[in-house]
Amino acid sequence: MMSFGLLFKSVTRDVARVAVCQHVRSVHTGLQLLAAEKALLMKLRKSTGYTFTNCKKALEKFDNDLSQAETWLHKQAQKEGWTKANKLEGRKAKEGLIGVFKKDKEAVMVEVNCETDFVARNEKFQQLVKDVALATLAHHQKKGHSTVGYVKSVLAGEELHKLSVAEGTSLADQVALAIGRLGENMSVKRAITVGVPAEWQIGSYIHGAVSGQTEVAMGRYAALVVFQGGKEGEQELVGRKLGQHVVGEAPLSLGNMDDLPCGESETRLLAQTFLVDPSRTVAQFLRGQQARVLDFVRFQCGETVSEEEK
């Protein structure tokens, strides 16, 4: 028979072995839990863009429920954004971007301002410009504007802030959220939408375009040009050249095809020397293309806008 001393040592070893196994399992489970929580944290951070600290706080608050955590984060950010927006109101915002979006026979051009060029290059600010452009076009379409004829609508300030984005929130909320995230005063200054009939064309040009932007083109200067005609296959190029001229020469009125140039101070589009080909006027270029310009709009970021131009 086994002595009491040997029996005691055997039992002690078995107990120790069980304890070690339980500890290993506990550590393993803990590591799994940590890995799962880290994965949730990374997912929430990626989907919302908020800081790791705030994401961790949200997950802890809602026992790792990703959906509730994300909803709470958005609400908190919105509150903080409005608070910061109110504090920064009144600070000059002259930088920013012009956004242009064209779809079929409609186009929209918007101006969104911030305080510095540094923020204008931020992707969150550029997302705001895109939101404004798409919301403005959606508003234009919702009002039932028909492209049987030429339609041009202008929105500014408070009218724009009331527009809704895809999730149903207002543009004012989106602006406040961007202010909260980027820490600068911002404003949605103005927007213009044009719609043309099937046989008309809309040309556009962006100067100083932001790289990487495709759906909504963005830059510091932009123009829309409404025209008829143009040689088959060359209409897009004609529209781009006309837009480039409008951006570069800043005409103030359209003028007539028979107008004679009055020198370097000429402000009528058709009588101006054509920027792309200085050997002729814009009117002469159009005759060669069998086209005619019906209207144009030019935006320069940060420029002073009179009440008549809004």
Results as ranks from 00 to 15, higher is better:
L269P: 01
V297K: 12
G212E: 06
S279R: 05
F52K: 13
A16R: 15
V297P: 05
M2K: 15
T273S: 09
A35Y: 14
V247P: 10
L286N: 06
L59R: 04
R240E: 10
V132D: 11
L269W: 05
M257R: 15
A283F: 03
R280H: 04
A138F: 13
K231Q: 05
A217Y: 08
F4A: 06
T48K: 08
D173W: 07
L40S: 13
A271W: 09
S265Y: 08
S3E: 06
G144N: 02
G144A: 04
A138V: 09
F285L: 13
M218Y: 13
K231C: 02
E111K: 02
A250C: 12
G302T: 06
K162V: 00
R287Y: 05
G30I: 00
E266W: 10
E106V: 14
L269H: 06
V293P: 06
D277S: 14
V18C: 00
G239M: 08
Q32I: 14
A16G: 01
V297D: 06
K94W: 11
T214I: 15
V246G: 03
D117P: 01
L224H: 02
C114P: 06
Q290I: 14
V24G: 09
T214H: 15
L177A: 07
P251D: 06
A291H: 09
H23W: 13
N185F: 01
D104V: 06
T71A: 11
D63A: 14
Q244I: 07
Y50L: 03
V112R: 10
E309F: 14
L260Y: 10
D259S: 00
A176V: 00
D104E: 15
G144W: 11
E167P: 01
V225A: 02
N113C: 00
D14I: 11
S3Q: 11
T193Y: 09
V132Q: 01
L137K: 09
G180V: 00
L31C: 07
Q68S: 12
A16H: 14
L66V: 15
C262E: 13
T304C: 11
S211I: 15
V276F: 03
K102Y: 12
Q76M: 07
A176R: 03
S26E: 11
E308P: 09
N256I: 10
A36N: 09
V216F: 05
A291L: 01
E95S: 15
M42K: 14
R287V: 11
D173C: 05
L137S: 02
L294G: 07
L97Q: 01
F101T: 04
V225Y: 11
V276G: 03
K102F: 08
N185L: 10
Q68G: 01
T273V: 01
Q284R: 09
L137C: 10
V297N: 00
H140C: 05
K75T: 01
L155Q: 03
K43M: 01
L6Y: 13
L34Y: 10
Q228F: 09
L182V: 02
S47I: 12
V238E: 00
